[in-house]
Simulated scan of single mutants.
Amino acid sequence: MAGLAESGSNPDVNLLYDINGLAKDAPRWFDRGVEFVGEYGLLIAMALLVVGCWWAVRRRGGEDAAPSVAAVIWAPLAAAIAVLVNVPIRGFVARPRPFVDHRDLDVLVSGKTDYSFVSDHATLTTAVAVGLFVAHRKFGLVGIGLALVEGFCRVYMGVHYPTDVIGGFALGTAVALLLSPLAMLLLTPLTKAVEGSARVGGLIRARGAALTGEEAVITGAQVERPEDRDLAA
């Protein structure tokens, strides 16, 4: 793969120059903005998205509250696992950063000395996005959009080839989806146990969220019956 990087005739390098070339013509303030967004901003946005998704599913309540919160918890866990899986992949492929072989690139971030394939940022954001998609479609779609923007930013900044980003998309998706059944099998009983707790049950279901009769029996909640209201009157 390093050999491919040395040739300017392959589509990967051509697309790298097309996207990074936008940085050469853009105002400096815009480049600084992309640098912050691509390095830190989108990671912060993904963290806020996880919190927002958790807040939404716990307020929604219903019998799917515990599994939905379990899916939200899985999203950042999937990202962490995907990044760990990427460690041996990077060492095995050993692909230099694009600016090592192409010194005329406009590099917006300095100090990158590790290998290029696969992009950690693309891997992390994609794993979170796909994990959230399992829990809540709308939040997941927003996350996928942010992951795509992250991938573009990494190439724009001159620190990754397009194929590094595509590899990150594939790795993050694979980890989040393939390990999801096992994760849900382990996390759902935990969230259900927390849901039944008087002290911390609000982490799974907001106060006032709807309880079905069957759920009330399981959690020990009391459901007011019409005849009870008549007797009270």
Rank of each mutant, 00 (worst) to 15 (best):
A2Y: 06
L4G: 12
L4P: 08
E6S: 12
S7N: 11
P11M: 05
N14Y: 12
L16H: 00
G21M: 01
L22M: 14
K24P: 01
P27L: 05
R28K: 14
D31R: 05
G33K: 09
V37H: 00
G38Y: 07
G38M: 09
Y40V: 15
G41V: 02
L42Q: 05
L43Q: 11
M46E: 06
L48M: 13
V51P: 06
W54N: 06
W55L: 07
W55T: 07
A56S: 13
A56Q: 05
V57L: 03
R58H: 04
D64K: 06
A66Y: 04
P67M: 01
P67T: 02
P67A: 08
S68Y: 03
A79I: 10
A79P: 05
A80S: 13
I81F: 01
A82R: 09
V83K: 10
V85Q: 08
N86G: 13
P88F: 05
P88M: 11
F92L: 15
V93G: 06
R97C: 06
D101A: 15
H102W: 02
L105Y: 11
D106L: 13
L108C: 03
V109R: 12
K112F: 07
D114S: 15
D120L: 07
H121R: 03
L124N: 14
T126S: 07
T126F: 06
A129L: 06
F133Q: 05
V134M: 11
H136C: 00
R137T: 05
K138D: 03
L141D: 00
V159P: 01
H160Y: 01
P162N: 06
D164H: 12
I166E: 10
G168I: 02
L171S: 07
A174S: 12
L182A: 15
A183F: 05
M184R: 12
L185Q: 04
L190S: 05
T191D: 02
E195Y: 02
S197G: 10
I204Y: 03
I204D: 03
A206G: 03
R207N: 14
G208E: 01
A209C: 02
A210E: 13
A210M: 04
L211R: 10
T212N: 02
E214N: 10
A216E: 08
A216Y: 00
V217K: 14
I218E: 10
I218G: 02
A221D: 12
Q222H: 14
Q222V: 15
E224H: 10
R225F: 09
P226D: 12
P226N: 04
L231Y: 14
